[in-house]
């Protein structure tokens, strides 16, 4: 056990955890941020995706000891002053979910994609999102939601 200072959703948070505990486990079980989900623990499904310095990252594969200096954003950190991010709003508008378990990982992967590539082609969306599983099979709606979000975001300096 060691104490770590994490920067999560814009706030400094102190947490006691073994250095090799996964960031996912720390977020969910020690910081009560349950938006990131466990799906496989092996980086294969993307349900645990968070942003690490803006990059979509599988939090199940990252040890908490390695992220002390990084800025971590979970699904709980996207909404600003009660306003959904463009990607969140687009998922809602497209109804791009069924059970919703994959949704937080999908939204963060999409957020990361749109920060890198403001107007992705369909092929770029498919490639960027291929590591995120939706067992309910809502992929076509998720692609539509990402395209909608891209349309609604300012052309330059797109933020979350």
């Amino acid at each position: 056990m060691a104490e770590f200072l994490l920067h999560v959703n814009g706030a400094p948070l102190h947490v006691n955890a073994p250095a090799d505990e996964s960031l996912l486990s720390v977020l969910r079980n020690r910081l009560h941020l349950t938006g990131p989900k466990y799906g496989c623990g092996e980086g294969q499904c993307g349900a645990c995706t968070v942003l690490l310095d803006g990059e979509a990252t599988r939090s199940c594969l990252v040890a908490v000891g390695s992220v002390a200096n990084a800025k971590i954003v979970t699904i709980e950190g996207l909404e600003q002053n009660g306003k959904l991010s463009a990607v969140q709003q687009a998922f809602l508008d497209e109804g791009a979910f069924q059970c919703g378990y994959c949704t937080s990982g999908m939204i963060l992967s999409a957020t990361s994609l749109l920060q890198r590539t403001h107007k992705p082609t369909e092929q770029q969306i498919v490639e960027a999102m291929d590591g995120n599983l939706c067992r309910c099979g809502t992929y076509p709606r998720i692609v539509a939601a990402i395209q909608r979000a891209a349309q609604s975001m300012p052309a330059k300096g797109a933020s979350r």
């Binding site: 969910r28 009560h32 941020l33 349950t34 938006g35 990131p36 989900k37 466990y38 979970t74 699904i75 709980e76 996207l78 909404e79 959904l84 969140q88 709003q89 998922f91 809602l92 109804g95 979910f97 919703g100 378990y101 949704t103 937080s104 939204i107």
Partner: peptide, 20 residues
């Protein structure tokens, strides 16, 4: 639209594995 849709895009919805 789906009831509670907003909670799924904000991470607020509590699934069984999220119960504490």
């Amino acid at each position: 639209p789906k009831v509670g849709g907003r909670d799924f895009v904000t991470g607020a919805h509590k699934f069984p594995s999220d119960m504490v």
